[in-house]
Design a protein around this nucleic acid. Structure first.
Length: 400
DNA sequence: GCCACCGGTGGC
DNA sequence: GCCACCGGTGGC
């Protein structure tokens, strides 16, 4: 995750936002654009935040393309988590809160989820999702049922792909990519996501709040709780309805890296196996610059990891071949393609070809999802220039 | 005393 | 490096 996004939000309260994350997947469509999926925004109920605004779409559309109506969640105005329709946002300005553009400004204010957005699989524009519940519903089957703008007509009757994106990634916000297909919590249960402060060892924590209010923080605790409260099991609650997968922040270095363990750096001979490769050594995508330079790189892409207990994943989303299967940056097992990677614009190094599977490529250190979104994939193995696009990603932007 | 939050670690 | 898990603890 290279792309970083700054964020900022003047949020003052700590929160418990939940943020559902999403992630994107790859698909093999051959479209011209990079598809991204969804992102939503949302905020936790009781907590308040400030309004948000939408910004131009990520396709670099201009402000003039602002939609006639945006769905903005205004936690202050209504803490219920409902969204507020804002007619004709004429300006595409940054959110009204302070910018978090500096790399890692210290902050003791816990960030919170400001919005959930989902990317349309057809036009790749990001659409704000009005409520966390709706977001969770979309996310649950995002792989099987990619989100499209038309689906937003449920809360925005006239929306279509012709409308400008509701929001785009920029430095004014911290973005995070959610995992796809995370089951909706059982009725009466709440899936809570708490974003940790910058510089923490983890980006966030997921908790489940049982109907009783009891908070559970791991599958082990869930299981134990269900055993102790068989009534839930009788009601149909199953372990498959829980997932502690957390979203990934797009801002680089948001999470403090854990010092490398000594043993891991050496092979049996005592020789250092390899130093961490600099992104630039490994892949051209590492050149991806700051968001400002490459706004399109900010989109979180598909995080092809396999959901914990979750539902099925696309076949071609090769199970993140556990990293151990990584022989080198290039060779992977099944699903392999010779992929030519081009930076769409501002290329600093032309085109490069790699033997990578989509999934594993995404797993490569350094780039991951955003990178996938920002490149053009060409399948060279069959002589065609098919584009390999990501079509479903979910993301949230975090308010701090 | 509780608990939200953070840190650390074992396993992969 | 990532993830799941859980212990510790500061603030209430």
């Amino acid at each position: 995750m290279q792309s970083q996004t700054g964020v900022a939000s003047p949020r003052v309260k700590k929160e418990e936002d939940e943020f559902t994350d999403s992630s994107s997947l790859n698909n093999l469509d051959s479209t011209l654009q990079e598809p991204r999926d969804v992102s939503t925004l949302e905020e936790e109920d009781e907590r308040s935040t400030e309004d948000e605004q939408s910004t131009e779409d990520e396709d670099n559309q201009s402000c003039e393309d602002a939609p006639n109506q945006l769905v903005v969640y205004n936690p202050v105005a209504n803490g219920s988590g409902q969204i507020e329709a804002v007619p004709d946002p004429t300006e595409c300005q940054p959110p009204p809160f302070p910018c978090y553009s500096t790399p890692n400004p210290p902050s003791r204010v816990l960030p919170s989820v400001g919005a959930f957005t989902v990317q349309c699989a057809n036009c790749f524009k990001w659409r704000l999702i009005p409520t966390k519940e709706k977001y969770e519903e979309i996310r649950e089957n995002i792989l099987q049922h990619p989100f499209v703008c038309e689906a937003a007509r449920e809360w925005r009757p006239d929306i279509s792909c012709d409308d400008a994106a509701d929001i785009s990634q920029d430095n004014s916000r911290l973005w995070a990519i959610d995992k796809p297909n995370i089951a909706q919590p059982p009725p009466g249960w709440q899936r809570l996501l708490r974003i940790r402060g910058e510089g923490s060892t983890k980006f966030a924590d997921v908790y489940y709040a049982a109907p009783s209010g009891k908070k559970l923080r791991s599958m082990v605790e869930i299981q134990r709780y269900l055993v102790e409260h068989p009534e839930y099991i009788r009601e149909g609650v199953t372990m498959a309805q829980f997932s502690f997968q957390i979203p990934k922040p797009l801002q680089e270095n948001y999470v403090r890296k854990r010092p490398a363990r000594l043993a891991a750096s050496y092979n049996g001979t005592g020789l250092r196996m390899s130093r961490p490769l600099e992104p630039s050594e490994v892949n051209p995508l590492s050149w991806v610059g700051p968001d400002d330079d490459y706004p399109e790189f900010q989109i979180g892409g598909p995080r092809l990891s396999t959901p914990y207990i979750e539902a099925p994943v696309f076949d071609h989303v090769a199970p993140p071949a556990k990293k151990k299967a990584r022989r080198s940056k290039q060779m992977y097992s099944s699903n392999q393609h010779n992929i030519k990677i081009e930076e769409p614009q501002q290329s600093r190094n032309g085109t490069n070809t790699y033997d990578l599977t989509m999934g594993n490529f995404v797993e490569e250190r350094g780039w991951k999802e955003e990178a996938v979104h920002s490149v053009t994939w060409e399948c060279l193995s069959n002589g065609l220039r098919d584009r390999v696009d990501i079509h479903s990603s979910l993301q949230s932007w975090i308010m701090s």
